[in-house]
Simulated scan of single mutants.
Amino acid sequence: MSTEIRKKELMSTFNFRHATKEFDPTKKIPEEDFKFILEAGRLSPSSGGNEPWKFLIIQSADFRKELAPLVTGAVRSLPTSSHFVIILARKGLTFDSSYVIDQQTRVKGMPVEVYKSMQQAYAQFYDDLHLDTERALLDWSSKSTYLAMANMMTAAAHIGVDSCPIEGFDLDAVNDLLDKKGLLGDGEFSLSVMTAFGYRLKDPVRAKTRRPMDELVQYV
């Protein structure tokens, strides 16, 4: 396949995607297609390669009803979407935390002695980014979750599945609900963002609009 064909296919995918506010509740995403979407999230880049995310797939109708009053940004998408995803961000990922050490050595295969020899460089990295508070560390993890979400939405659009990113929620209230259900681990996670997936009930009323390239790009 030529480069030009690949570019046209990808641009077609980006133009197909739009923030779908309401889905056709009678249409469900096939299991294999949704696994494909999740795999795009799993393979996404993350700072340090730490994969600071967890994907909760909310399929229970009762659970969605509990969420509904807490998620004002999903009034129509929550009850109608085929799959509703809550993306959690890991908390407290310092360079010497047990999760990061396990990620770098067991998952990524870095020899323990090599990782230990790099700890001064890691400490400098954290210092340069001012990752010195619980909130700063959570924000750092959350930035990576948005990369995963974007890739999942693009993968979905590539196979004709719609999506909608959602930030309109009561953060504390949803975290409390998730915690009561035992879904935040032992204080390891916090809510980052949500995404609904399904098939659009109707086409967008207007074409995609964006600022022109010359207002957004500057070569220096």
Rank of each mutant, 00 (worst) to 15 (best):
N175E: 13
I159S: 08
R200G: 07
K181M: 08
S144F: 01
Y146C: 03
G160Y: 05
S192Y: 07
E167G: 12
L184G: 06
S190W: 06
N151Q: 11
M149S: 12
T154L: 15
K181A: 06
P165V: 05
G160Q: 05
G198V: 03
A156K: 00
E188I: 12
I159W: 02
Y199L: 02
K180A: 13
V193I: 15
L171P: 01
G182P: 09
D176L: 15
A173D: 10
L177I: 14
T195W: 10
K143R: 13
L201M: 04
H158V: 09
K143E: 12
S192L: 04
L178P: 11
R200N: 08
T154Y: 15
M152S: 01
D170L: 04
A148H: 07
E188T: 13
L191D: 01
F197Q: 00
A155T: 04
G187A: 09
K180Q: 13
E188K: 14
D172M: 15
E188Q: 14
A150K: 11
K143N: 13
L184R: 09
N151E: 10
G185K: 04
S190F: 09
A157R: 00
S142V: 11
M149F: 09
S192M: 05
M194W: 03
F169C: 02
C164F: 12
G185M: 03
M149I: 10
K181D: 04
T195K: 08
G185P: 04
A150W: 12
Y199I: 02
E167R: 10
